[in-house]
Write a protein that binds this DNA or RNA. Structure first.
Length: 828
RNA sequence: GCCGAAGUGGCGGAAUGGCAGACGCGACGGUCUCAAAAACCGUUGGGCCGCAAGGCUCAUGUGGGUUCGACUCCCACCUUCGGCACCA
């Protein structure tokens, strides 16, 4: 087939790179052969690579390709390193868009959802990724959500799920409650509608039980960015809970507790503030103050959350007429109610220390309340304060504590408080329990039956799944059809058999995606969510990839789920995903996040049709660092296509070869081959896909130049270059790599080959260019053999006509020599 | 306000403290063509000198510092992006 000494067939159209033909052919072959099916019995070490599953929105967009193509390359790379790689794919299929589409078209959400699954699976397949489709999971299918319901029952059994009445976020447009995590800037995460508070009885998971452990990231390699976002969200504060005496006629409660991070300022308390929603407000308010307080509380209730959250606005508040006693000094201080105190944080009440807290300071100034400094701060001259004082100095006005330095103050006061029974040291977290009820139909029904006699009774595991009705009728009430579906509602109490009523709320879709990685390992098991043996073999996930927009939602929930599963004896590890890489977000051309409502979603189909999947994959990898993201712009894609065309031409074309094992051209060729293998290996290991593509381009350019120079090289070295090219292309551009491998006469498949090793000796240069600087400025570049001794280099440098003028007549102070890089002559 | 990341050509971006701008897009010039597209070849940070080969010089957000040498390390500031935010 190869003809020793012909020149290349430049414009032979039959030999041109035609991606579409190649890609459809190989995709069919791979599927027919089951090339990407992962066996549970494979003895090789396992590697579980996972990329976040897409929501069934309708079409795959550029963002999906951007997230998945590099993940696929990384998974394939692992496979070529001898790992038994599990790289599954599925669909997050419950949620509101399906329901909204159903209301609009008058069809069942399942229709819309499963049609989207079909379409998106096809689109995903066009990517040529190594997904094992035999393990696909769809969270909205009964054989999946049966197990979501099972998880709910386990959590309930272990007191990690509970129902309570609480003020919860409500989205008036979506007509459902939301978890705290799903409220962004006071708006619904899904639809951007301003949310409101409602008092409702809802199901919660006790994620707060794990607040402290969730702060520990030491058992995995996650980015500092995500860790800090989660830490922020959990919001740990160390301080103390202090009691204040309450003595109001007709009020049973004799104390109010506050959380403070500054118990050491307790002698500076000059007033006390409770949130307008605080249950005691109504009770303690004196008759004279009643009208004013009621008006204030009502106004606060009516105000939008966005207005209330603003930090800029002036402090407001009303005196309740009541007083509390500071147990430390027996002082009575007035109790105010003000909306700068949040009912959801701490105890909903604060001890106000205007001298040492800026918010209390502003409030005191506005309402003419006393300000008593309790630290002799070094910056304070004893005059009237213009702002609250920070940490520093030692205690004053603090009875027995006067003179205690700042560093010891908190510990001393807490110790005293505990001895006297005034309070105790404690830790407070900002995170709230996870609200998982949704008043929507397209979700997994919460498996509970309400009975007149027995209350909320869990559905027995043997009765799972609680199926969604397939004849849901959508009325324009905004309410879930489950609430008026007689067939669904009617149920017998599992305890007494009397007629009961089913829970009509469904599970938050984030609960369904909190454990999907566990289902992939055993997706067809109908006895258990997954077998223990397979869990032991595959879990946890070794490498997870996905967007950082899930930092305090999915990525926090799945960690909680794993810890709960561990404590319930279901799994034996602490963290769901050992390594996490967050790719950046690909934005629309307008620089905005791609979303259907903005109309800036770009479908990749056109580009894939035009250039091929390989080109598109490589282009997305080439754009820049993967964690960078940025606006999508297709203008550079032709360059990547041109590159793959050149690869095609140079690898399939003919070359003048012979036996020339030791010519400079052959040595140079080997050097390029081994250098490129080295670089591509390193870059794939570190997820530096952009520089990997650049290195492959440079290698290609060298081969093209070499071929066009007409030089003859060693046949073995050329062969090695061709085969190496196919192998190192395989993870990123799997189709062309397979085709080239096949055309080189190698056995199917390139994707089951071992990653090529590189020879450092062959990769090493035998001559290097060394920069010669005088006082840090480059004056000359010299070619020298590798590891040339300093004196040889120095002699040549001094002799150089471009160096001499800068050195002549000057005193040489110092000479710095960095082997194989540069020589810097310092003169005076 | 607090936490995190980042500022490099017209654009995307590259550079273990050691030759700034790899690789690619775009632009310009050329080959092929009746012509255009495609493809291929060449040039391409700014300024200055030179017919030319080439040389000089400025340049990595701003200002300082450390160093023989700074895109890289340190300090301050500015800007952008992401997160949290009246969290006691």
């Amino acid at each position: 087939m190869t003809n020793e000494t012909t020149t290349r067939p430049r414009t032979d159209s039959a030999a041109r790179y035609s991606p579409r033909e190649i890609e459809t052919r190989w995709q069919a072959r791979w599927e027919a052969d089951g090339l990407y099916l992962t066996s549970d019995d494979d003895p090789r070490p396992k590697w579980y690579a996972l990329t976040m599953l897409p929501y069934t929105s309708g079409d795959l967009h550029v963002g999906h390709w951007y997230a998945m193509a590099p993940s696929d390359a990384a998974a394939r790379f692992k496979r070529m390193h001898g790992y038994n790689v599990l790289f599954p794919m599925g669909f997050d299929a419950f949620g509101l868009p399906a329901e909204n589409a159903a209301i609009k078209n008058g069809r069942h959400p399942a229709e819309w959802t499963f049609a989207n699954v079909e379409r998106m699976r096809g689109q995903l397949k066009s990517m040529g990724a190594m997904f094992d489709w035999s393990r696909e999971v769809v969270t909205a299918s009964p054989d999946y959500y049966k197990w979501s319901q099972w998880w709910f029952l386990q959590l309930l059994k272990h007191d990690l799920a509970y129902k309570k009445r609480a003020a919860v976020w409500w989205c008036p447009k979506d007509q459902t409650v939301l978890a705290n995590e799903q409220v962004l800037d006071g708006k619904c995460e899904r639809c951007d509608t301003v949310v409101m508070k409602r008092d409702l009885e809802q199901w919660f998971f006790r994620i707060t039980n794990y607040a402290e452990e969730l702060l520990d990231f030491s058992k995995m390699q996650w980015s500092e960015q995500i860790a800090s976002m989660q830490r922020n969200w959990i919001g740990k504060s160390v301080g103390a809970e202090l009691r204040f005496g309450l003595d109001v006629q007709g009020v049973e409660t004799k104390e109010i507790r506050v959380f403070t991070t500054r118990p050491d300022t307790v002698y500076g308390v000059t007033f006390f503030v409770v949130a307008p929603e605080h249950p005691l407000v109504e009770q303690i308010t004196t008759p004279e103050q009643r009208d004013a307080v009621r008006a204030y509380v009502d106004a606060a209730r009516r105000e939008s959350e966005i207005d209330r959250m603003s930090t800029e606005r002036e402090k407001t508040g009303v005196f309740t007429g009541a007083y509390v006693t500071n147990l430390f000094n027996g002082e009575q201080v007035p109790v105010w109610t003000a909306d700068y105190v949040l009912s959801t944080y701490g105890t909903g009440a604060v001890m106000a220390v205007p001298a040492h807290d800026q918010r209390d300071f502003e409030f005191a100034k506005k309402f003419g309340l006393k300000i008593v400094p309790v630290f002799q701060h070094p910056d304070w001259d004893g005059g009237e304060l213009t702002a609250a004082l920070g940490h520093g100095g030692s205690m004053i006005n603090s009875g027995p504590f006067d003179g205690t330095p700042d560093e010891q103050a908190i510990a001393a006061v807490v110790k005293y408080a505990e001895e006297q029974g005034y309070g105790r040291g404690t830790v407070n977290y900002r995170i709230r329990d996870w609200l998982i009820s949704r008043q929507r139909m397209w979700g997994a029904p919460i498996p509970i039956i309400y009975c007149e006699t027995h209350g909320a009774v869990p559905v027995p595991e043997s009765d799972l799944p609680v199926l969604l009705p397939d004849d849901a009728e959508f009325r324009p009430t905004g309410e879930s059809p489950l609430t008026y579906h007689e067939g669904f509602l009617r149920a017998k109490c599992p305890t007494c058999g009397e007629p009961g009523r089913r829970e009509t709320d469904t599970l938050d879709t984030f609960m369904c995606s909190s454990w999907y990685q566990m289902r992939y390992i055993d997706p067809h098991n109908d006895e258990r969510p997954f077998s223990r043996e397979l869990a032991k073999k595959w879990l946890p996930v070794d490498q997870y990839t996905g967007g950082s927009e899930h930092a305090v939602m999915h990525l926090l929930y799945t960690r909680f789920f794993t810890k709960a599963a561990r404590d319930m004896g279901i799994v034996a590890f602490d963290e769901p995903m050992l390594r996490l890489f967050n790719q950046g977000q690909i934005l629309g051309p307008d620089g905005q996040r791609m979303s259907k409502s903005r109309g800036n979603v770009i479908a990749p189909d056109g580009e894939v049709e035009k250039w091929g999947a390989d080109t598109f994959r490589a282009y997305l990898m080439f754009l820049g660092p993967w964690d960078g993201g940025g606006p999508y712009d297709a203008s550079g894609i032709s360059g990547v296509y041109r590159w793959l065309s050149r690869v095609w031409t140079v690898v399939t074309g003919e070359m003048r070869t012979g036996a020339h094992a030791d010519t400079p051209e052959t040595r140079e060729l080997r050097r390029w081959t081994h250098k490129t293998i080295t670089k591509v290996t390193d870059d794939l290991t570190e997820f530096r896909f952009n520089t990997m593509v650049a290195a492959l381009m440079e290698f290609t350019n060298h081969l093209v130049r070499l071929r066009e120079s007409g030089a003859e090289v060693d046949a073995g070295a050329w062969r090695e270059a061709q085969e190496s090219m196919a192998l190192i292309l395989a993870p990123s551009v799997p189709h062309i790599a397979e085709e080239l491998w096949s055309r080189l006469g190698k056995p199917y498949s390139v994707h089951t080959q071992t990653w090529p090793s590189f020879d450092a000796e062959l990769a090493a240069d035998d001559a290097v260019e060394i920069a010669v600087q005088v006082n840090g400025k480059v004056r000359e570049r010299l070619m020298l053999p590798v590891d040339a001794p300093e004196d040889v280099l120095r002699a040549q440098a001094m002799a150089s006509a471009s160096v001499a003028p800068y050195v002549e007549g000057k005193e040489i102070v110092r000479v710095i020599y960095v082997p194989n890089r540069l020589l810097n002559i310092v003169v005076r």
